[in-house]
């Protein structure tokens, strides 16, 4: 961590990014692409500065809903995988239902959610939850139900019950998978929130993107995209730190 190699890597990544932006900036002038089709980076920065308060307010709004959806998805997935890991019968009945539900394009549910719950927070949190739970559930459940046969037999020989095996082995062994699936869940939760905002909301970055493009204010839409990418990236990094600390053993890091 923090070695000179890391510093070098970050440095070269920044150089590549700046170069890309420079080429982009120049080409919009050289080729004369209209600003409402592809805005030069300078205009995106300008729009970000001009609307900074408005953008911050909407970013925080989007973030709050995505995090709420993710938290809900995490808790739900953990509880459901426990139940499914405990009972094979329930697993066989419920698994196809969950997989079938996952096959529904969740964006298509937003109008219904808006019909039932209005234009407030609930449809956004729910959409984010509905998209985010599956990528968390599957790895967690798989880790719980794939306890090695030999280990299982050893525990049973010692007199362990199914519940004890679940608590002492299945849950701890699933934690690295659960935590790493939160990265995927986070990305999905943001997608869910933004989609819901575009369909049925009057705030949040999804709404800002929709309203700005309808006014042909493309720089502002790009500004929203950049903010979303940056937020998702930062949150994922924070998650990574938490993950490495919480399940040190999975990375075989000696203390």
């Amino acid at each position: 961590m923090g070695s000179s190699k890391d510093v070098k890597n970050v440095f070269s990544a920044v150089i590549v990014l700046l170069l890309t932006l420079a080429i982009w900036e120049l080409s919009t002038y050289v080729v004369k692409i209209p600003r409402y089709v592809l805005p030069p980076p300078s205009s995106v920065i300008e729009a970000t500065a001009r609307y900074s308060n408005y953008l911050l307010e909407n970013l925080l709004n989007t973030l709050a809903h995505a995090v709420a959806g993710l938290a809900l998805a995490a808790v739900f997935s953990l509880l459901l995988s426990l139940l499914l890991a405990y009972s094979e019968v329930v697993r066989e009945v419920v698994s196809p239902l969950v997989a079938g539900f996952n096959a529904i394009p969740r964006a298509a549910l937003v109008p219904l959610l808006a019909l039932w719950f209005g234009l407030g927070s609930l449809p956004r949190v729910l959409t984010s939850f509905l998209i985010a739970f599956y990528p968390i559930l599957i790895p967690t459940l798989t880790a719980m139900v794939t306890v090695e046969k030999e280990l299982w037999e050893m525990l049973v020989s010692f007199g362990a019950s199914k519940k004890q095996i679940l608590v002492k082995v299945a849950i701890p062994r699933s934690m690295p998978y659960f935590l790493s699936s939160l990265h995927m869940g986070l990305a999905s939760a943001l997608v869910g929130t933004v989609i819901a905002e575009m369909i049925a909301s009057d705030r949040g970055l999804g709404y800002v993107i929709l309203s700005s493009t309808s006014r042909l204010d493309t720089p502002l839409a790009f500004s929203c995209l950049t903010l979303l990418a940056f937020t998702a990236f930062s949150l994922s990094k924070i998650l990574g730190v938490v993950e490495k600390r919480a399940v040190r053993w999975a990375y075989r890091v000696s203390t």
Partner: peptide, 8 residues
């Protein structure tokens, strides 16, 4: 045959 220790 294998120790089957819990890594956590």
């Amino acid at each position: 045959q294998s120790p089957l220790l819990l890594p956590w």
